[in-house]
Design a protein around this nucleic acid. Structure first.
Lengths: 137, 137
DNA sequence: ATCATTGCAAACACTTTGCATACGC
DNA sequence: GCGTATGCAAAGTGTTTGCAATGAT
């Protein structure tokens, strides 16, 4: 795995304890967490961490292209590190978000009805594998 | 155009002045407005209208399947009446949201990697036709 | 008379802002 | 020492809740 400090420097972001921990968390836990989830997860080992810093850091990372901010359903912002082409599936039962393979053509940089596409997001919602199995029991 | 009262009755929603006006607004102005935009637009001719009622009504309509709530970008909830298959394009310059034709296969009711899909949303972002032309001037 | 809808005020959750302190080169 | 990052408290948004007043049958 690429060194976190390297990644930050490449994007002109000064490394700091807080920034490293937050990016590390997003690399390790691919759960598409909200700002608050990240804060809760790190607060134990970083008692002086403030939510403002989490928000600031996520904003910086998103602006510099380190992270992607997702607006899926229910009006919540979630963050992810991976930028491999994929789409999102959110389970209405357990709330978990899955990355699934993008099987169709990406419209990025294409022209659609005269509009120039820069981002292309596909969001699915339904019942996930896990929850389907539970119902069958 | 189908009578609004008919539509409401079909969905077991008791018609009221407020509900009719709100649905009428969404039928007439296909701008994918937020709750606040709807409130602002109607407040003039309905001085006693409350924002709570707008929120209540949009919630009811969405639950009963009269409207669809969209989570596009920037963490804002927008509402639309049409349910013809289409996808959304949001312009990063002017903020306008366009409906564009869905040219690829809908995954609704299909099984993707074991997950059962109920909803399928495609969101594009970029520079719209209008704003592209303005830059060229 | 009964039951649902409305609308005010207050509460709430999430996010941003202002500013003083602390940190790192 | 200087410029940036941090973090507290407060303010700002968007939305929901509690409850009394209103409206419809």
């Amino acid at each position: 795995m690429k060194n976190i400090i390297e990644i930050l420097k490449e994007k002109d972001i000064a490394p700091s304890m807080q920034r490293i921990k937050i990016l590390e968390y997003l690399q390790n836990y691919k759960t598409h967490p909200t700002a608050d989830m990240i804060y809760q997860a790190l607060a134990d080992e970083m008692p002086t961490l403030s939510k403002t810093t989490v928000y600031n850091t996520l904003k910086t990372f998103t602006e510099k292209g380190v992270l992607v901010a997702l607006s899926l359903f229910e009006n919540e912002v979630r963050y992810e590190y991976t930028k491999e082409p994929h789409i999102h599936f959110k389970c209405t039962k357990c709330g978990r978000i899955y990355d699934v393979l993008k099987t169709f053509k990406c419209l990025k940089n294409e022209n659609i009805e005269g509009h120039q596409v820069i981002e292309h997001h596909v969001n699915l919602r339904g019942i996930c594998k896990n929850c389907l199995e539970k119902v069958e029991d």
